[in-house]
Design a protein around this nucleic acid. Structure first.
Lengths: 117, 117
DNA sequence: AGGCTGTATTGAAGTTTGTCTATGCAGTGT
DNA sequence: ACACTGCATAGACAAACTTCAATACAGCCT
């Protein structure tokens, strides 16, 4: 047995991030794991009004309208944005609770501490 | 034409997140878009030593050893962790530059500002 | 050298994802 | 009532992802 830090290959540490929480959080990260969705979120957040009409988002990409609609749906299902129809148009805005929760998880990682977010 | 906020359906705003940066960042988010990888990162970060032996990570999941190895490889390719072989064992640690960059992007979103991270 | 242990790579199977075209639904205005 | 516009949904298909068993590689020990 070579010289080795004590603790290597011992049973296994307490899992700092419970499986259930990991599933929840990873769904949020997965939603931003596509360049189109990340840009959509960024564009929605960039507006000082706090919301953007879909009719402004769709032409910003060289993608079909249903594709953009699909990505917006995924962002909504992940809790990252919400939307409301007002007359003919639909407006989207960011839900900061979700982005804050993700940021908290990342901060705890770079601080090298157990995660409980 | 109904009463409407000025600016709806105008050409399109300056894209706050350039396509190239979005591709880079979304690759990082994608890497955390899987519950196993998120838990791996959390477990690696949770150690006060700052690093963890693979032999401690693998038995923490009900997955085969090659599967864990594959997920660790993806985390490494995304720049989230790095590793080093020391004798028989391989140790992984977090690269906080990457998690910090992701956290900065998320913070700028919840602050509703254009993203330049 | 040879066997053993820990980790990575390969190749394959099944599932999920991103995109499109076609269609449906909601609201406006004639 | 009808046509028109903006957005969402349905279905299809290729590409990518997750997982595994099998195999290869690296380092230790006798």
């Amino acid at each position: 047995m070579p010289k080795q830090e004590a603790g290597c290959c011992e049973p296994l540490p307490e899992d700092p991030l419970a499986a259930e929480q990991a599933a929840e959080l990873s769904a949020m990260f997965k939603a931003l794991g596509d360049p189109v969705r990340l840009r959509l979120l960024s564009m929605i957040a960039s507006r000082s009004e706090g919301e953007v009409c879909v009719c402004e988002l769709t032409p910003a990409f060289e993608l079909s309208q249903p594709t953009i609609s699909h990505h917006l749906k995924l962002l909504r299902q992940a809790g990252l944005v919400d939307c409301e129809r007002r007359g003919t148009w639909v407006y989207y805005w960011v839900r900061p609770e979700t982005t804050d929760r993700m940021a908290a998880m990342l901060s705890s990682v770079s601080e090298r501490r157990a995660v409980t977010a």
